[in-house]
Structures are given as C-alpha cells and as structure tokens.
Design a binder for these strands. Sequence first.
DNA 1: CTAGAAATGATAATCATTTTCAATTAGAAA
DNA 2: TTTCTAATTGAAAATGATTATCATTTCTAG
Lengths: 166, 166
Amino acid sequence: MFENKSYGTVLPLPANNETSYFDESWTEDDLKQIIRKMNLKVTPQRILILQTLHEGRVHITAQELYEKVQKINSDVGFATVYRFLKGMAESRVVTELRMGSMPTRYELTPKKHHDHMTCTDCGKIVEFQNKNIEDLQEKVARQYGFKLTHHVLELYGICTSCQMKK
Amino acid sequence: MFENKSYGTVLPLPANNETSYFDESWTEDDLKQIIRKMNLKVTPQRILILQTLHEGRVHITAQELYEKVQKINSDVGFATVYRFLKGMAESRVVTELRMGSMPTRYELTPKKHHDHMTCTDCGKIVEFQNKNIEDLQEKVARQYGFKLTHHVLELYGICTSCQMKK
DNA sequence: CTAGAAATGATAATCATTTTCAATTAGAAA
DNA sequence: TTTCTAATTGAAAATGATTATCATTTCTAG
Ligand SMILES: [Mn+2]
Ligand SMILES: [Mn+2]
Ligand SMILES: [Zn+2]
Ligand SMILES: [Zn+2]
C-alpha cells in the first residue's frame, strides 16, 4: 500500500489533485489580513508560507511546503514552516490531515467542510461532501449525550483507473 | 455485544475501564491456533503478548502492552511487542487506532465492525455501530467509482459528564 | 525613532516506531 | 530423539517527523 512508501518522497498524487480548489486569488493585503486575524505579527516568512500554501497543491506536507518556500526564499527555516502551520491549524486557517502513518498533510480550511476518499494504490484523493452522513453523526452523538466538536472520516479503496490496471 | 456501552479511556486510564469486551476466554490452545493461522511460529513471547492483549483493556498502546507483559515476563523485548502487534495488524487480528497525534492504540479486531467517539476532555471512548452511515459510505464510493477496502470514522466531542462539569 | 515583545532559524532534543544483527529457538525432517 | 536451519528474539542503534531551545533579529505600538 502507498502508506508503506518511504518518507520524503512525494506521494504519486495525480496532477488533478495539485490544483488549488481556492478559486479566488489573494493579494498581499489579503495574506496580511489573515495573519493579523490570528493575532500574529506580519513577517515576510509568514506571507510567503501562506502564499505558497494557497497557490500550491492541496494536501501538502510541512516538508513539501518548506521545500517549495525554500526555492523562493532560502532564508526561511523549516522550524518556521512547522511552527506557522501548527499555529494556523490551531486558529483553523488550515486543517490537518493525518492519514495512516504518513506525515501530516495540510490544506487551507475550506468554506464548506469535506471529507476524503483515498486510493490505496496510487494515492489519489477525492474530496466529497455528504450531508446525510454528517446528520447521522450528529444523531449518534445525541444518542450518547455527546456534544460533537469535529470528526474524521476517511474512506480508503481502489480508484477506477487502478481497478482497470488489474 | 458492545452496543450502548463505553469501554476504556485514552487519557486518564481508570482501572474500572480495563475490562475486555471479549466475553469468551481463550485457552492456551486458542492462542496458539491464532498465531499459527497467521503463519507464525508459536513462541512463549507471542502467546504472552496475545494473552495479555486479550485480557487487558481495549485501545491499548504498544508501550502499555509492553509494560504489562514485562511484569509477567521481563524477558520480552519491546521490539517483539511492536513487531508482533504490527504483524497482527497486517493479518487483521488486531486493529490499529490512530487518533490525532497520539501513539497508535490497538484492539483485537471485533467480530462486528465499530467506530469510535471520543471525549476530548476526559478521553472516554464510546464504541458505536451505525449501518446507515456505513451504507452511505458505500454509496459515496460508488458515486466516484471507488471500491472501498476500509474506512476511518472518529467522532470527537464532549461527553455528558464533562459537559456537566461546566 | 525606540523599546521590548515576538519571531526566526540553526541546532539539539523528543519520541514513537523500525531496523540491525548476533545469539537463540521452534519445529520439520531424518 | 537428534539435527538442521530458517524464523525469532532483544539490545541497541537508527529513523523520521515533529518540537523545543536559545541567541539573534525584526516587528510594531507608542
Ligand atoms: Mn481536502
Ligand atoms: Mn474499539
Ligand atoms: Zn488509484
Ligand atoms: Zn468526558
């Protein structure tokens, strides 16, 4: 399974997974606003990291993001990338994705919540929304007296093209 | 079997939550059979590890299991515990539970699949089954041409008693 | 401007998990 | 039962992602 592939190498995410789903473009002022909203000082590093995250592929690892940022400004340390990513996760600007034992992946928190379905052969990730499932989750929580804060739903299987390869 | 019942905790580990949900008791022969079925040699270490896992609390970490086993036979190394646990996970004898960034927890794979709802305050874990959700997952997979192999569904929230503490 | 809190980044530390490898052992065959 | 050998073991080292340290630099409120 792709979960056993060595660390450091980029997962074979197909090109269509590398497009950002954020249609809107962000100006430097937008970026600064976002940083200020999390009560952090605006620094060139944070602007660059956030910008790169926004422009780049979704579901990126801290390491991948660090490498991308490095190519633009080699003065950015990976500690800063990890730190900022962690901060953004805390303030919900980004969402952490922990799939299996692989390094954590990040995506800018989308306006509308979605879950993920991953092909265990090629690593393709499909995003989906299903209100019925979300409603049922609430129902389960209610049955046990829980007040839900969040959830993790990941589907794993074989995608169409990988099925045909066999 | 474990419907409407909560088992184990992740964080505080109260003693009264250490009951196994496996009603059946396993004889040494049962243990040996299970090990042989995964095409592994029967060793005293593996018997002890499996037995301890069966008797102990569900949702246990490798480290916790190692410590329990140590008390009975200090000749068992933690590499063996990790290795055997990993092997059992591969042959589906145990199920891995990766919650957030905490160390992996293990449980003997139950006859009937269940998912987990965790209190983020006290760590209480509630196991639940919901056929509707499972069906909807299949439906989603079908929509995208995926052939599902497994899934991860974790609900997080505040349990009843933790809600009252506020 | 300036002060001082916040941020940075090189480096070391953490920590769960995996690997290595020499010594031991299970268990099939003789 | 004895032999043989591949599988297993455990101590220790390695790994890899992530986090902490801390001396230095940089924001930004005033
Ligand atoms: Mn996504
Ligand atoms: Mn369980
Ligand atoms: Zn695929
Ligand atoms: Zn609670």
